[in-house]
Amino acid sequence: MSTATPATTPSAKKNLGYKTFAIGKFGFERDEYFAHIHYPGGVQTMPVDAFLRALMRDVGWGFFYGTVNFDHVIGTINHYGTVELFAGLLNEAYRSKNLHYVETFDSKDLKKVFEQMLDDWTNEGFDPYAAPDETGNAYGPKRGNNTKALKRERIVSARMVGLPGDLPYRTDAAGQFINRQFTDVPQDSPEVHAEPGFEGEVHAFNMFAYASRSDVTWNPSVVSNVKDSQICATTEEYILPIFHGNDRVEWFIQVCDEITWEVADGKTGNPRAKVTMKAGDVAAMPADIRHKGYSPKRSILIVWENNDSTLPKRYSGGELKPYPVEF
């Protein structure tokens, strides 16, 4: 594995202070405004802030469930141990002209390169997890870093937030303050009257308040579990930085405010629907689509996942239909 790749665009000849990276036959370089992804047969250019936001989710989620499309050309597919890095694989035009390129890597090898790239290319003051209104810009020559912000990972409750030995509550004391757009979300606590000996089982917490203190966007964290059923709370603002193509059915419960989902076909990228979700709405995202969300105001969303590891094969093999209910 190398972290040096030949300069193939004019920007790479400038001395902006950024490293170039390579893995397999893919090469990565950045300039003041753009990331350039080189692959056999082409180069894809993305705005660097959009690239870093997508890269942050891919790294933070450990390549997540299924496909993480950085844009309409570049993306990763998680095979849970290995991961495919592709250009044009899930784009109908690229596929029809045989312009796509795919390489498979050990997940840990690709994650290492992505983490190094994210760390080197993220400037001081830019937080790829934050909403645009809450962070500095990603542009210009290299200036410092923001390593601390990049180390946040997807957090997972084993049973329910707040139980002994499980994820703790978010508090001011821990530096987890109420987000500026959730100052009107009540922070009260339920009344819990446990008899002696049952303190660890008679349990409740303010989940909306917990979510209101999230300092990241578009980053679901598990708050409660029923076997493989995981309720994940997340706060959303601006645009989901990726087009997520799940390898299983995923459900959304809109807790407050509104999100519009742009839905396209998982394999071709052709548009299929727009789903507008308001407070109290529940909707499924089928297993054969990709989706991108738009949240004009910071909102609380529950992402409900089925963590059964056999599902990708059962969906891709046709055993299970891509939509969850027939009626």
Partner: peptide
């Protein structure tokens, strides 16, 4: 639209 199973609690 049925594939999205959209309802409101």
């Amino acid at each position: 639209p049925k594939h999205y199973v959209l309802s409101n609690v």
